[in-house]
Structures are given as structure tokens and as C-alpha cells.
Design a protein around this nucleic acid. Sequence first.
DNA 1: CCGTCAAATCGTAATTCAACGATGATCGAC
DNA 2: GTCGATCATCGTTGAATTACGATTTGACGG
Lengths: 106, 106
Amino acid sequence: MSEDETVVTLAKALAHPARIRILRLLQATPGCIGGTIVDAVGLAQSTVSEHLRILKAAGVISGEIDGPRVCYALNPRALSVLADFVASLKAADRDACCIPEPKAAT
Amino acid sequence: MSEDETVVTLAKALAHPARIRILRLLQATPGCIGGTIVDAVGLAQSTVSEHLRILKAAGVISGEIDGPRVCYALNPRALSVLADFVASLKAADRDACCIPEPKAAT
DNA sequence: CCGTCAAATCGTAATTCAACGATGATCGAC
DNA sequence: GTCGATCATCGTTGAATTACGATTTGACGG
């Protein structure tokens, strides 16, 4: 997968409110949570499972079978490519020709 | 707009190969480019214009009317919220209960 | 004023995504 | 082996995205 494709995949993984909520939940929860996620995001179990699948496919989280339930955890290293891309954009802090000062989008 | 919504909006803006290419193009090009973008991404003019609209709506780029054409430029500050979110995920480098070592996604 | 060039907008078809209920698979307890 | 619990998968529906050509808008030059 090319770097651009990786960026796109990671960005897509973050491009949904439910998935952001899941990530924040995993970040805030010290231990492992299984069906707690379903309760927290307020969507159907199958829908949450699909979101978890997408996050896992992007490599952002990993799932470990732990008895009858599954333990999900953040896999922050996967986000490096996206982080680098964003950082490189920020680094290019511009010698643009026609925008003298930073301003909000039109 | 809540912070999560901002993250989602920014992530959506990055969630398409053509838009990544446009951003890289703006990053690499010192001066201003107008219709050059259309030629570079290989899509129809109206499609590129739509991508530029999405990027502008997310605040990632800004467009300045420059005579007969429009000058686009990166607006890297807009990405701060996304960058911070990603950084916070990476910082939470885990006291998870059941993943002893980082590993690739299943 | 009129033609021209660049960009945005409109209308539309095709693809992808999100959500749900129902079903299937796997594990632990009994 | 059987039951109950937890999660994944399947099939379907509705909404959002993407792409295109065609048209409109706006800015210059003749």
C-alpha cells in the first residue's frame, strides 16, 4: 500500500463520530472493555462491531480474544504515517504567493 | 462545533486520494497554481472543484481570487485539532490489560 | 459590448458507507 | 452435551459521496 493510500485509510478510520468516540473510550479506559463499547456509543451491537472491524483493518486498534469476550486496545504506532503527513503539511508553513497572512478559510 | 466533530471533518477532508494529492501538490508548489491542479490529478474540472470546496470547507486550504484565476494555499493551522487528537492517542501508550506487546492488527 | 478563459454550480448516475435485525460461531459454566 | 453470553458475519435498506457533462458566473482583453 502506498503512503498516500495509508493516509487515506487512516483518515477514513477517523472520519466517523462513533469511531472517534470508541478511540477516546479506549484511551480513557485503563483496563479492557468488551460490550461496554456498545453501551457507550449507543448503537446496535452489529454496527459497533463493524466500526471496530474498520478500526482494526486500519491497524488503529488491536483485538485480543480474552475468554468469552474480546479485549480491544489502541495501537498508536499505526497512526504514525498520518501524523507525519499532517506534520509535513504544517511544516510547509508557506511561501505562498498571494496569502500574506494566515487567515480562516473563505 | 465540538472537538470530535472537528476531528471528523478534518479526517473526512483527508479521506480521499485525490484530496491528498491536491494537498501534496500545494505543499510542493512554491507559487500559486490554478487549473494546474485539474491537470495533475487527472479528474474532471468540476470534480476537482468539488474536492477543493471540501478542503476549503474543512479549513485545510484557502482560496484567494487572483485576477481571472484562483490561488489556493495550504492553511496548516486548521489541522491542529486533528494533530492534537492523533498525538493524544499516541501518548496513551497504554496500560492495557491484555496486550503485553505492540503487535500488528489481527 | 462581446468573446474568452477559469472556476463554481447544477443535475444526475454509480458507487460506497452506515445502520439495523437476524443468524452463526466460540467460549465458559453447568 | 446443553445453556447463556459475547462478538462476528450476512443480507438489506436508506443516506451520503464521488464523478461526470453541461451550464452559469466573473474577470479580463479586444
